[in-house]
Design a protein around this nucleic acid. Structure first.
Lengths: 220, 220
DNA sequence: AGCATAAATAATAA
DNA sequence: TTATTATTTATGCT
């Protein structure tokens, strides 16, 4: 249904929004006209795809502008390397209203009422601009602004139990390059296959190497 | 056996917006003397952080350029609303060498040797430019170029009944990592989709892991 | 209005 | 590379 026939009458903005799935839900009902008059709970994503955007009415809210911003916001957020969660947490940390990851998600997807969007837009706009400002001064500053730990290490995938990981790490700290004999002993203690432990150390060294490089990279 | 769930990305908003200027910020490499030893397997991510980027030597490979491109590639990919999986599959589909999602991931992270990067860069550059070209002509064209279904919708979130949860948990207690065969049987018993049950176990393991981490943390 | 968690994507042990 | 974990996004609920 929503697959825009794409008349390509588009001028310079080929930006075509993908209607939110929720729009498609009501396929079972005798369609007719969408209950747009439902005003309060109708989402932006639904409204902007209405045939008469010129009637930007809806209480003076510029839906087109909101849609545009939502799109840009996502790109700019990703450009900064931030997650929805980080944005939500940062907003919650600073003064002003708090917002959850869900809220950011729903804003980007325009799965939100015009009224809510109108309220949230300036908050995000201001915050994002500030984040970009700090980023210009170095990523370290951005992370500080966002509130995340500067050198937060990514957790590695593992098929080991948390307990085993703990033990392995303690060994690694003491010696990142155990001898064959030591590997055998560690494997025995943890009751894991020797080869598995050997590979763990290989990958662990590799990760450490890459990680430390990346950090240096980001510090600038 | 290949129960990959990766190819679906239609929920992303394919955006046609030009990457934000901040993306183009060029970071100058920091100086740091790192013990780069094993010549052939040294990764780009390590090399670019070497003190003498000017000595772009390494067999005439411009590491700085590769790093820059990798960064931009990610942003441009996201701007098109494409996933690493989609890029990999698309490259595999067209003539030329095949690349997996992992390969794309490693290129973006620069977790790859200069030689490999040098080889992959032009391939990605060409492909991405072409993708952007099609995108300009409409999102429909891009999706066709990429090879994915234009309107792949996200699966609706499943709601398990309390009874089903109870049964699943009892199975999980006995074995948190059921075999494919077992999953099939459980799904059949509960009358849920097999894939849904498989994912439930994945997420359940995840939750348990997080929980136990916290507990360990608190104990200490 | 946002928590919990299902689904999807990115990273990585093997 | 592949198969699976780690991480992020999206959504059902009330």
């Amino acid at each position: 249904v929503p697959q825009q026939t794409q008349a390509t009458a588009a001028t310079q903005l080929p930006v075509v929004i993908t209607p939110h799935p929720s729009v498609l839900k009501s396929t079972t009902s005798p369609s007719s006209s969408l209950p747009i008059s439902c005003g309060d709970v109708t989402k932006v994503g639904q409204l902007v795809s209405k045939p008469h955007p010129s009637a930007s009415g809806e209480e003076g809210i510029n839906l087109e502008e909101i849609r545009e911003f939502a799109k840009n916001f996502k790109i700019r957020r990703l450009s900064l390397g931030l997650t929805q969660t980080q944005v939500g947490q940062a907003l919650t940390a600073t003064e002003g209203p708090a917002y959850s990851q869900s809220a950011i998600c729903r804003f980007e997807k325009l799965d939100i009422t015009p009224k809510s969007a109108q309220k949230l837009k300036p908050v995000l706009e201001k915050w994002l601009a500030e984040a970009e400002h700090w980023n210009q001064k170095g990523q370290q500053n951005l992370m500080e602004f966002v509130g995340g730990e500067p050198s937060k290490k990514r957790k590695r995938r593992t098929s080991f139990t948390p307990q085993a990981i703990e033990v392995l790490n303690s060994y690694f700290e003491k010696n990142s390059l155990p001898t064959g004999q030591e590997i055998t002993e560690i494997a025995k203690e943890l009751n894991y296959d020797r080869e598995v432990v050997r590979v763990w150390f290989c990958n662990r060294r590799q990760t450490l190497k890459n990680t430390s490089k990346i950090n240096i990279f980001q510090i600038q």
